[in-house]
Amino acid sequence: MKPFTQINGLVCPLDRANVDTDAIIPKQFLKSIKRSGFGPNLFDEWRYLDHGEPGMDNSVRPTNPDFVLNFPRFRGAEVLLARENFGCGSSREHAPWAIEDYGFRALIAPSFADIFFNNCFKNGLLPIVQPAEVVDQLFSEAAQSEGYRLSIDLQAQTVTTPSGQSFPFEITAHRKHCLLNGLDEIGLTLAHADEIRAFEAAHQQRQPWLFV
């Protein structure tokens, strides 16, 4: 996993509530057995005017000029600014894979769906929860000034606007540690293999029917 320390990224505002994982990456792309290459199909149904299928040459498909991701001023955006309950719906990790593959490194919203939120951390993506009024302010600033960027510092746990206004955000110590260092969580857990084995033996004593 790519470590996340700090970025100063162009902001793309996606002004819709309840953006679901079917919208983030439609089901036909879930047939892939790989975990890369989903970026060109991020928000496929909103981003293109035709119907997308796996294997198409996305570079020649007609794009929707009204969809924010296609605005020239947001090309190369690394911070996705979103509304409440972003990532609701299915557990498909293809959603954060697509967002990360597109080039985003961080997301800011008033709230995220639980499973999506959790999946982001496994892929070097930083989802940041901010109060609704802060998100409103960021939407308004991003609309007003072209090339609007935000500085995100994970170590300091801050989001800083171009004018120097700084907002703190929360993250668990465990997630912060893994993200800062780009750690393989399985390797970390297996360091506790003895504890897992001891638990398992006692668990089997208590509930032998679970171990058939």
């Binding site: 975990r35 990790e93 959790n118 892929n123 857990t189 293999a193 897992i196």
Partner: peptide
């Protein structure tokens, strides 16, 4: 429900973080 990274984590460690 869990994501695919967690599917792998459960397979490898029988646990979830």
């Amino acid at each position: 429900g869990i994501g695919t990274s967690e599917v792998e984590h459960v397979m490898a460690t029988q646990t979830l973080v």
